[in-house]
Design a protein around this nucleic acid. Structure first.
Length: 210
DNA sequence: CACCAGGCAAGTA
DNA sequence: TACTTGCATGGT
């Protein structure tokens, strides 16, 4: 399994090169983006974040003080704008209450504990929490998403009903726990998923992993 | 027109 | 526990 997983990575990297995730000017922006991108194309999230920047409100205090109606209007392009407004505020309240809205304070907390705290926040599930940990705070945590499950399942590395934890453990146990590696690997799986491993096309003859 | 996107929570049985 | 549904815009 170790050879298999590192072999996949080498093939993906050779096929697609570095992906440059996560685009964003600051860790805070990455965390906001992690919530906005839930089941939503990144393209649409960029529009929403662009609106926040254009209005100069992409800061914890400003977003917290803003009325829900205005925030919802600004993030509208990201879809689910009403529920994401509430979830964003849930996270912002947590961030302000526990860490004084400081990334440095949040980042100094032990990773597994912080992950548990994030999962208690309404609107933050495993993928969003892990995306924040890896891409905003540079913690060596593997992000599992729908593409990861589909690709690993189709290549016979996990059962089709494997849980999030099961898949995450597979990467943790069989790869060097490296932020750089986890960062690039997840992004490459998404790239492969978009280009070759689509939902409706179970068979792929030109998959770079073959 | 149908389908999907860098998920999550709540409801039902 | 295991399934289903609501949330919503915008690109292909």
């Amino acid at each position: 399994m170790k050879r298999k997983l590192s072999g996949f990575y080498k093939k993906l990297y050779a096929a697609f090169g570095p992906q440059g995730w996560w685009p964003g000017d600051s860790p805070f922006e990455v965390m906001v983006g992690a919530i906005l991108t839930q089941n939503t194309s990144w393209h649409n999230v960029e529009k929403a974040i662009g609106n926040l920047k254009e209005s100069s409100v992409l800061q914890p205090n400003k977003l917290l003080k803003m009325g829900n109606a205005r925030l919802a209007r600004l993030i509208r392009p990201a879809g689910y704008y009403n529920i994401k407004t509430r979830w964003l505020k849930e996270f912002l309240r947590f961030f302000a209450r526990e860490y004084n809205a400081k990334v440095s304070a949040m980042s100094s907390v032990q990773t597994s504990f912080l992950r548990g705290e994030l999962l208690k926040v309404h609107g933050i599930g495993p993928e969003t929490a892990d995306s924040m940990l890896l891409y905003a705070l540079n913690k060596p945590v593997f992000v599992v998403d729908a593409y990861t499950k589909r690709i690993l399942s189709r290549h016979g590395l996990v059962k089709s009903d494997a849980s999030y934890q099961e898949i995450q453990d597979l990467f943790r146990k069989n790869l060097k726990n490296s932020v750089k590696l986890f960062n690039e690997y997840h992004a490459l799986l998404v790239k492969l998923g978009k280009d070759f491993c689509l939902k409706n096309k179970p068979k792929c003859q030109i998959c770079p992993l073959k």
